[in-house]
């Protein structure tokens, strides 16, 4: 599904990613771990197509199609979804209205008519139940005055609504208490399927107890320095990142 070869990327002239190789197949869940500043969020932004991040070298393809020249919205229409670490507020725009716009814009890009209102309502009802979201929540302004947990739950709700092929969850566990974490993880697990893939970016092993990955990669200084099974996450939890840093130096 996603193929990344020798990817180098910079922001404001500063090299952040220094040769990433990663292949994610349909049906897989990959976890990307690593210390602060290792380039985890940059990788997420580069895949989503954020302008400030400049790809210097290497390639990035989704289902064989090169992503480099595509705008963020075109990538979204292809099925790329990013759950933001810090979701932005849009005052006066309700969660429902935002989702309606997003879904219909994607449909338009595919040459489809707007989704009929009753179908939209049904979808919203179904997905909000999945994430145990109160109906009142949906008429509130997007992310305005939301708690950390509500923001993250709302991100996963959007993921559920848009049914992406490739979902990248950037630090979705940060700011969540244990109950919220369980609801969010539960939601994500229900969205796992053989046709889609998920990349989970996280600092801690905690989230991975709930969303069990098929592969774990450790990112350090813009490179994947170690890949392994879910057990790698446990090892990291126990030993920290330092032994890996030393290992790469050796």
């Amino acid at each position: 599904m996603l193929q990344i070869n020798d990817l180098h990327a910079s922001v404001e002239g500063k090299k952040i990613l220094k040769g990433i190789n990663l292949e994610v197949k349909a049906g897989e869940v990959h976890a990307i771990m690593g210390p602060n500043g290792s380039g985890k969020s940059t990788l997420a932004s580069v895949i989503a197509g954020k302008e400030e991040f400049e790809v210097k070298k290497g390639s990035l393809a989704l289902e064989g199609e090169d992503l480099e020249d595509l705008s963020p919205e075109e990538r979204a229409h292809m099925g790329v979804f990013l759950s933001f670490q810090y979701p932005v507020e849009i005052p006066g725009v309700s969660v429902t209205n935002f989702m309606k716009t997003a879904i219909n814009e994607s449909r338009k890009a595919k040459g489809l008519e707007d989704m009929p209102a009753n179908q939209m309502l049904k979808l919203i009802r179904e997905k909000s139940e999945l994430l145990e979201i109160d109906r009142k929540f949906l008429s509130r302004s997007l992310n305005e005055g939301f708690s950390g947990g509500e923001k993250k739950r709302n991100e996963i709700f959007q993921m559920a609504m848009l049914e992406p092929k490739l979902a990248i969850l950037d630090e979705t566990d940060s700011g969540l208490d244990i109950d919220a974490l369980r609801i969010v993880a539960n939601g994500v697990n229900k969205l796992r399927g053989k046709d889609n893939a998920i990349i989970v970016i996280t600092h801690y092993q905690r989230l991975l107890e709930y969303i069990v990955p098929d592969f774990v990669h450790v990112l350090h200084d813009g490179k994947i320095v170690k890949s392994g099974s879910k057990n790698l996450a446990l090892e990291l939890e126990e030993k920290g990142y330092d032994w890996l840093k030393q290992e790469t130096v050796v």
């Binding site: 705008s71 963020p72 919205e73 229409h77 725009v93 997003a102 879904i103 848009l162």
Partner: peptide
Amino acid sequence: IGEDQIFYCNQRGIDTEKAIALIVNGFSKE
């Protein structure tokens, strides 16, 4: 109107023009 707001909308499949309309309408809603 921040680039972050626009990018957030873009990432959800909403192009920049539509994103501005959405943000402005939200701002003016009352």
